[in-house]
Computed example of a mutant assay.
Amino acid sequence: MFPKKVFIILVVFTAITNQLNAQNKIVALWNKIPDEIKAIDYKENQSIKEGKVQSTSQVSVPTLSIFLPTAIKPNQAAVIIFPGGGYQHLAIDKEGTKVAEWFNSLGIAAFVVKYRLPSDKIMKNKNIGPLQDAQQAVRYVRENAAKYNIDANKIGILGFSAGGHLASTLATHYEEKTYETTSKVSARPDFSLLIYPVISMQNDITHKGSQVSLLGNNPSQELLDSFSNEKRVTAQTPPTFLVHASDDTAVLPENSINFYLALKNNGVAAELHMYEKGGHGFGLGVKDTSKFWTRDCQEWLKSQGLTQ
């Protein structure tokens, strides 16, 4: 029988080893991808710089990349990250890996989703393919919360640009049955972080590239309304932190403004930061006032009891 001191050391060592083994691990999101169409000529296309994947497209096998803080803390918060790219590619480094590392520095676990992009070649209904992956990502993290020392009630989502559309779709369509599952675990995120997000599919303010990629060239008004997430907010929509720049000409700031107003009108806790300058696609912040959004986000996370 081990002396008590040796036993404690072994327990701590095992916990650290398990944590390190999970660090930066990549797991498949599905055992069986729902509504999959096999396409031999549809191959993932990665852009690599200095040995690091910068962006990727033609994703057919969705995955989760797991980033855990080095300090082991029970009941930590987690954020599931959806990179942007107009539903045509994923800015997996700037709006994925780097962001996950920043969350780890705050003591928050992070999961980067390499989700399937809408394509008639590999999915029966391209409108819901990305949403299937998003719902499954939340269920996976919640089902494995204990394994990663995560509080199952502190699992949030973050989306940039078109990834923000996917995140806001998840926040407003989490109960929608998009695939067959025996899981009883909720796909509802506990909070949302939306950074220069596409929110609406309405022609006057949408990002046209994202709209065409997700819904096709001539979508019905019913389809436009269904995926215009400012129209789908209810009192059960999760608390939300929004960031946009007034001079964003790619994704108009009205996307964030209208979503914020819908949240406010439904009594949902929400905070909107509209910076004068920053344009679009500034990631963690590059210049102008938008470079401070991470500081403001950290303060909001503190106010929600999600980080120190």
Results as ranks from 00 to 15, higher is better:
residue 64 L to E: 03
residue 57 S to G: 13
residue 59 V to T: 09
residue 49 K to P: 14
residue 62 P to H: 02
residue 42 Y to D: 12
residue 54 Q to C: 06
residue 45 N to E: 15
residue 37 I to D: 11
residue 52 K to R: 10
residue 41 D to R: 07
residue 41 D to C: 02
residue 38 K to N: 12
residue 51 G to A: 12
residue 37 I to C: 10
residue 60 S to E: 05
residue 64 L to T: 03
residue 50 E to T: 13
residue 43 K to H: 15
residue 36 E to Y: 06
residue 56 T to V: 11
residue 53 V to Q: 03
residue 53 V to M: 04
residue 65 S to N: 11
residue 37 I to V: 14
residue 64 L to M: 05
residue 47 S to A: 14
residue 42 Y to V: 07
residue 53 V to N: 03
residue 59 V to C: 08
residue 58 Q to I: 00
residue 49 K to L: 15
residue 36 E to H: 10
residue 36 E to A: 12
residue 36 E to L: 08
residue 48 I to E: 01
residue 59 V to N: 04
residue 60 S to F: 04
residue 55 S to N: 04
residue 59 V to D: 05
residue 64 L to H: 02
residue 42 Y to C: 09
residue 48 I to Q: 01
residue 56 T to N: 07
residue 52 K to T: 13
residue 59 V to Y: 02
residue 57 S to T: 13
residue 50 E to W: 09
residue 64 L to Q: 03
residue 38 K to T: 12
residue 46 Q to I: 07
residue 56 T to R: 11
residue 60 S to Y: 04
residue 52 K to A: 10
residue 63 T to K: 00
residue 40 I to H: 08
residue 35 D to W: 02
residue 44 E to T: 12
residue 41 D to N: 09
residue 54 Q to H: 05
residue 54 Q to L: 10
residue 44 E to I: 06
residue 50 E to G: 08
residue 50 E to R: 13
residue 39 A to T: 03
residue 49 K to N: 15
residue 58 Q to M: 01
residue 42 Y to H: 14
residue 58 Q to H: 04
residue 48 I to T: 08
residue 61 V to I: 09
residue 45 N to L: 13
residue 62 P to R: 00
residue 61 V to Q: 06
residue 38 K to W: 03
residue 62 P to Y: 01
residue 45 N to K: 15
residue 40 I to G: 03
residue 56 T to Q: 11
